[in-house]
């Protein structure tokens, strides 16, 4: 475990906690894309099936269980518990345009043609684009609450830190995974525009509001 991965994991954990706290304290899921959260639940479920086949460490297992569990709690909050506050009119991204191509790609480009490997690959590809419904929602409404911005920043930083982790592992461990690296680059690039807005606006005390 190197520092980049540890900070990346903590950033991921922080993002999830920020999101849950935002929903719970404000009793509202306004501004949050239920579609992105469903995609994240699918990502974690398909990636962590190895919980049943291999054990790495207590840290690894507990983080996986936490990520899967909280992703379902989040989806439950949006579509059940706080449903009246869910802004479905603005959450109109067509997720089939992500799931179908990503599924096809996972089928064609993978490390090994087996069920678990294809599902793992699918989850890596899907994670890279899962935030698009959320970013689409922010651009459609033209604004994001500060707390939502903090969530997005922590979530985006996590994969950027994993890129540094992979550079480190390449040099010091000779480890390189093309699928993870390409998907990680795509994922991080999708956040670049948001990172720019976050640094130039949110950190100066303004909330993100885009010109109509």
């Amino acid at each position: 475990m190197n520092i980049f991965r540890l900070v990346g994991d903590m950033s991921h954990l922080l993002a999830i906690i920020i999101l849950l706290m935002k929903m719970w304290k404000s009793r509202s899921v306004a501004g949050i894309s239920g579609k992105s959260q469903i995609l994240f639940a699918i990502v974690f479920t398909t990636r962590y099936l190895d919980l049943f086949t291999s054990f790495v460490s207590i840290y690894n297992t507990s983080m996986k269980v936490f990520f899967i569990g909280t992703s379902y709690v989040t989806v439950y909050f949006i579509y059940q518990h706080f449903k009246p506050t869910y802004d479905s009119n603005h959450d109109t991204f067509r997720v089939e345009f992500l799931i179908v191509p990503v599924g096809g790609l996972a089928f064609l480009v993978n490390h090994e043609f087996s069920l678990l490997e294809i599902l793992w690959t699918f989850s890596i590809y899907l994670e890279s684009v899962a935030i698009l419904p959320q970013l689409f929602m922010v651009s459609k409404t033209g604004e994001a609450e500060s707390i939502t911005s903090h969530y997005l920043f922590a979530l985006g930083s996590y994969r950027a830190l994993y890129l540094l982790n992979w550079i480190y592992r390449y040099y010091f461990e000779g480890f390189f995974d093309l699928i993870a690296v390409v998907a990680g680059c795509v994922q991080t690039i999708l956040y670049c525009d948001f990172f720019y807005l976050y640094i130039t606006k949110v950190l100066k005390g303004k909330k993100i509001s885009l010109p109509a």
Binding site: D50, V56, S57, N60, M63, E112, W120, F175, D177
Partner: peptide
């Protein structure tokens, strides 16, 4: 098959 190293990542 993918390397073992990635199995310890999240």
């Amino acid at each position: 098959e993918k390397q073992d190293a990635i199995k310890d990542e999240l």
